[in-house]
């Protein structure tokens, strides 16, 4: 009897260790595959040149258009979603009473928005653009991606804000500060958490293809106005991979390396900031 009990325990423990190892090796396998296929095709031209004539037939050029386009797009959407998320989170945490129903409804609606898939944001952005009479453009992409990353930002910033000890706002208020002045001080205190939230949102926004597919369009040039279409890195990978020419496919792998490296940097710096934050927690 005791023997079977032990055997069962050991059996499941081994299964657990196997599944942990499987998950870890999947990550290594994915990154390894991308690097193995992409690194040979990666050269300085890839990141420094625009697609030249016949780029999609294997002639020379790079994906600078997509890199710059992605950067423009993500900075625009971060600005938009920041100006909405920061006041919102401060509002539900410090302006509304502690057990406010309104605050929990807002939190709940962002939980749901967080689950809405990017293709739906893309379709909604597209419907909105038709309604406004816009064509596929940088601005359209910025709006759609801002909608996509706002729930991520709100949720992760809210999580940090809720952990802030209530003494600080109470002390500020008792000194006669208005709530608005209090929020400014608290915001400084919450800065590392906010940076983590931004980095998370940037990571998600820069890698998403389904939102920008409808809204931002694609072009070989650098976008120089808000109403011009803009290329993005994920779409550039997607389109190049669809080509039958082998060199172009290799370039897709190289572009995948660029995107993966960007994501890795973002992810590690998010971790760095959040660990720094948890060390400073009072």
């Amino acid at each position: 009897m005791i023997n079977t009990k032990r055997q069962e325990e050991i059996f499941f423990k081994i299964l657990m260790i196997i599944s942990i190892c499987v998950i870890m090796s999947i990550l290594l396998f994915i990154i390894g595959t991308v690097l193995y296929k992409g690194l040979p095709a990666l050269d300085w031209d890839m990141v420094s040149k625009l697609p030249g004539g016949g780029f999609y037939l294997g002639k020379e050029g790079g994906v600078l258009n997509a890199i710059i386009g992605s950067l423009y797009l993500i900075s625009g959407s971060v600005v938009i979603s920041l100006t909405l998320s920061v006041p919102l989170v401060l509002f539900i945490n410090f302006y509304l009473p502690k057990k406010s129903v309104f605050a929990s409804i807002i939190r709940f609606s962002f939980d749901i928005l967080f689950g809405v898939p990017s293709i739906v944001y893309g379709a909604f952005g597209f419907a909105l653009m038709i309604f406004l009479g816009m064509r596929a453009s940088l601005l359209g992409g910025i709006i759609a991606v801002a909608l996509l990353i706002m729930p991520i930002m709100v949720r992760s910033f809210d999580e940090v804000t809720r952990l802030l000890p209530r003494d600080l706002p109470d002390a500020l208020l008792s000194l006669g500060a208005t709530k608005y002045e209090m929020s400014k001080v608290i915001l400084r205190q919450l800065m590392p958490g906010l940076v983590t939230a931004i980095l998370l949102a940037v990571g998600r926004g820069i890698g998403d293809a389904a939102t920008v597919l409808f809204t931002a369009g694609y072009t070989d040039n650098l976008p120089n106005a808000l109403n011009h279409p803009a290329a993005t890195l994920p779409l550039s990978i997607f389109f190049q991979l669809g080509s039958p020419v082998e060199e172009v496919q290799n370039r897709a792998y190289a572009s995948a390396v660029i995107l993966t490296v960007i994501i890795l940097i973002l992810s590690f710096s998010a971790r760095y900031f959040s660990s720094k934050y948890s060390k400073n927690k009072i």
Binding site: I23, M24, I26, L27, F29, I30, T33, V34, G203, R204, I206, G207, D208, A209, A210, P234, I237, F238, L241, A252, Y253, A256, L259, T260, I263, L264, L266, S267, A270, R271
Partner: peptide, 17 residues
């Protein structure tokens, strides 16, 4: 961090892989 990275990898990279 493994979980964080897996959730951070963009869909298009999963597609390529």
């Amino acid at each position: 961090p493994v979980i964080d990275l897996l959730s951070g990898i963009p869909p298009v990279i999963y597609g390529v892989w």
